[in-house]
Design a protein around this nucleic acid. Sequence first.
DNA 1: CGGGTTCTTGATCAAATTCAATCGGTGTGG
DNA 2: CCACACCGATTGAATTTGATCAAGAACCCG
Lengths: 239, 239
Amino acid sequence: MTDFLVTKMRRRDAVSAEEAAVLHGIRGTHRRHAAGADLILAGDRPNESTLLLSGFCGRLGLLRDGGRQFTEINVPGDFVDLHSLLLKTMDHGVVALTDCEVVAVPHADLRRLTEAHPHLARLLWLETVIDGAIHRQWLVMMGRQDALGRMAHLVCEMAVRLEAAGVADRLAFELPLTQAVLADVLGLSPVHVNRTLMALRSMGILEWKSGQVTILDWDGLADVAEFDPAYLRLRRDPV
Amino acid sequence: MTDFLVTKMRRRDAVSAEEAAVLHGIRGTHRRHAAGADLILAGDRPNESTLLLSGFCGRLGLLRDGGRQFTEINVPGDFVDLHSLLLKTMDHGVVALTDCEVVAVPHADLRRLTEAHPHLARLLWLETVIDGAIHRQWLVMMGRQDALGRMAHLVCEMAVRLEAAGVADRLAFELPLTQAVLADVLGLSPVHVNRTLMALRSMGILEWKSGQVTILDWDGLADVAEFDPAYLRLRRDPV
DNA sequence: CGGGTTCTTGATCAAATTCAATCGGTGTGG
DNA sequence: CCACACCGATTGAATTTGATCAAGAACCCG
């Protein structure tokens, strides 16, 4: 159940058999959400954190005029709102981008776990800190990269994160996001998203049809994106 | 020395006298940096975290063409790189935007502190999680607000954060950032930063000369910015 | 097969960039 | 005290990027 989480953590630090057992022993409420459903709304005060088991979720901010901006796409093995353990009140919403399967873990249990297992606590802290690193990288894209670079960067990131969780292959994976969602991820209009994808296609870098991404030229893609996976912290480094 | 930090934390949760004493007891290397100096470079593996005592720092990402994008402005009382405690390798640099005074605290000491004082550990974790919330809010600005809204939002945020640290008044404070730096914060060109500031000035909302900000119409500014300080988590909520 | 969503394409428009020049302080050396 | 250099702020003109509006095509799903 928490396999993807442990797989991902083990790219970052050793997780002992005992610690893995503690993580696998996490009990929470198992739920399914249909694509489009709100898992969490801004202003909510959840008393549990949600671990994504399958599907894709997005954290998003809303504007007065109805404008939406995603700040992260979550993949299986991600906690979509581990930070709510400390933030208490959510500053943003979380929506299901596809049908999703999740397990909601009570904050009380997580807190007990962190007090009993300081190393696991640091591994969880690390997960929230990596969320921050992803946000920073997105900020650099949004501020200083053009549409092509942003799109390429997003694809690189999703490829590497899905691979790290052990969910998919780096060069061919399912990413069933509509171009409208991509627009709200990249801060573009849906029309321009379409043109940007066409450009990557015509450059022979990428295929993306019916939610199926195929990367034909990883190096070319990474070059356009100026992608350096260091921020995803997928190297072993004891915490 | 760590007064600003404790002041800020006490806006978020009770900090007992004993805990405050522990924080005040933090010993580290006291340093000064001149404006423009690099405190940390991307790729560094610091074995200490840096608490800012006075002045302003910025976390920034770099691009191939020399483009820069700041991802956060740090004010007195902020750790500029508390996340390095877990990230180990820095994914971004930190530069002094003004002359700065800092104290560098060894990671070993911080780690010992978190193991001995779980509540303080959570307060520190919270600080890193709030960094993430700030990044998210910036992403929404960058993706979906125009230049005017972004500038207004930045000013609102700095006003509230400086006030929360007990460093300055919300309506009149020093923020000695050049328009070139503002451009790299907001993802704009220096020219457009200039025009944007002129617009806010001509709307009677803001004065900003020689690093001195005066907010003439807070409500107008917050309205342009769509500013809601909830993400800064300045309400008491025990962790 | 029909109806809705998603994708695609074209034409026009607005925002912000780039390039370029000027202006105003501030400090320094003669 | 002035000349000079330097940095930051300001302004204008031409250009680019991406947005908006609008319409048609393709694709699913019931």
